[in-house]
Simulated assay, not measured.
Amino acid sequence: MLIVDTTLCIGCGVCEANCAFGAIILKDGVAVVGDGCKLCGSCVDNCEPGALRIETAAKAAPSDLSAWSGIWVFAEARHGVVAPVAFELLGIGRKLADQRGTALTAVLLGASVESKAAELIAAGADKVLLADDPALAQYREDVYGKVLEHLILQHKPEVVLAGATAIGRSVIPQVANVLGAGLTADCTALAIRAEDGVLLQTRPAFGGNIMATIECPQTRPQMATVRPNVMAPIVPDAARSGEVIKVPLAPDLLASKVEVLETVFSQEQQANIQEKEVLVSGGRGLASEKGFALLHELASELNGAVSASRAAVDAGWIGYPCQVGQTGKTVSPKLYIACGISGAVQHTVGMQSAETIVAINRDEKAPIFDLATYGLVGDLFEILPLLTQKIREQRRL
């Protein structure tokens, strides 16, 4: 943390003026550090009186790293269905395991999910740790956490991967905290050093302005959550063979402080933008909620769905389930049409894996054109109706 020595601080204001994150203010002539501090160290370097310093926790003594081996994937399952992100993680997990010359294990928790083990083996797993119990039918963070902690301490995997889903973001940090393990959230790329097994975890940092590669060399397991639709699954091979290991669970592992009273499924017919092959996405350039009517017309002709940047969602023009980007969903459609979207990295990190990107923007210098397969410079309110009409005519031929 950033420490202010009040006996040395002279209230010169240099730190406040130069803090890129606005995290330091002067109060009663003394610098005060807020929650926005990123520990970049710039203020420390510029403080002539030496009143600022960064204190870091003492590094833990390295454990016996040789006792840990294997790559694990938490195969999240809900209501008897394995989440698609699990198969994506098995794809990258297979590459990491092959580089390390070790086994790839899928961890499957749930009720009546034994039949799903074959799917995980076909998708690349060498082993499936199966915890199949009626008490696991409903997701409860404390139970899932205890089971994962028990299995990790028993088997000592070198790497544990999970999807950055609502469940993954809930239970994996809890497990990492209990184990004292390093965890990198929302990774967009993973690699491993074959010689020492250090996992190289890449994710957006500083508001998405840079891509940081993070290492956890002193602790095991190395844990990471990965955003859906970032990694590619391998082609399933039904001929692959693997081992299914049934895990007995003691009653204390299944005891919970949480009681699930009811599960209610949403009645909204909102399309899941992560499952669509065509997305027509709108940003600040649409100017208002009315502009999205043009997007819906085009999406309808293309049998696609409408999505949006954070700016459009924050403005209340469309709902959050449609948001694409670092704080929204990651998508990988065959066609992504970006309308009035400038192309900030916070947005492009969520759609850059689309096969074909078409950008429509009146600013020819907009960053989105650097990423686009095809670019149309002009007024989207003129281009979209013409494009929709042209597609409609072609479909009638």
Rank of each mutant, 00 (worst) to 15 (best):
341 I>R: 02
373 T>H: 09
66 S>Y: 00
107 V>K: 00
212 A>P: 06
234 I>K: 07
312 A>R: 03
354 A>Q: 13
389 Q>D: 15
152 I>Q: 03
217 P>I: 02
241 S>F: 00
276 K>N: 11
194 A>Q: 11
369 F>T: 10
351 M>I: 02
290 K>A: 15
221 P>F: 11
81 V>S: 09
256 S>L: 09
202 T>Q: 10
149 E>K: 11
174 Q>F: 12
12 C>R: 05
287 A>P: 00
141 E>M: 08
112 S>T: 11
259 E>I: 14
359 A>C: 03
256 S>T: 15
353 S>W: 01
370 D>W: 11
11 G>I: 11
177 N>R: 09
385 P>W: 02
367 P>M: 04
55 E>W: 00
304 G>Q: 02
249 L>Y: 07
98 D>H: 06
380 L>E: 14
291 G>F: 02
268 E>D: 15
357 I>H: 05
155 H>W: 12
268 E>S: 15
126 D>Q: 04
302 L>Y: 01
76 E>L: 06
200 L>T: 05
176 A>N: 01
385 P>V: 12
106 A>N: 08
209 N>K: 12
320 Y>G: 03
391 I>A: 05
229 N>D: 09
208 G>I: 07
322 C>G: 00
109 L>Q: 07
312 A>K: 04
169 R>D: 01
387 L>W: 12
28 D>H: 10
357 I>E: 06
376 L>I: 15
116 K>D: 11
289 E>R: 13
286 L>N: 08
212 A>I: 08
277 E>V: 04
347 H>V: 04
342 S>C: 05
50 G>M: 07
47 C>D: 05
147 V>H: 03
340 G>K: 12
148 L>I: 11
68 W>A: 06
87 F>N: 01
267 Q>Y: 00
72 W>T: 07
183 L>T: 09
156 K>T: 05
356 T>Y: 08
321 P>Y: 02
66 S>N: 11
394 Q>V: 00
152 I>T: 13
253 L>H: 01
129 L>H: 08
345 V>R: 12
192 I>R: 01
36 G>F: 12
197 G>F: 02
345 V>M: 15
139 Y>Q: 06
56 T>Q: 10
377 V>H: 01
182 G>T: 13
223 M>T: 04
327 T>I: 06
355 E>M: 13
18 N>M: 09
356 T>G: 01
204 P>C: 07
331 V>G: 10
19 C>S: 09
204 P>E: 13
93 G>N: 08
346 Q>A: 14
332 S>R: 15
85 V>M: 06
297 E>C: 06
50 G>E: 02
58 A>E: 14
282 G>Q: 02
240 R>V: 00
174 Q>T: 14
260 V>M: 03
392 R>Q: 13
216 C>F: 11
279 L>P: 03
92 I>H: 02
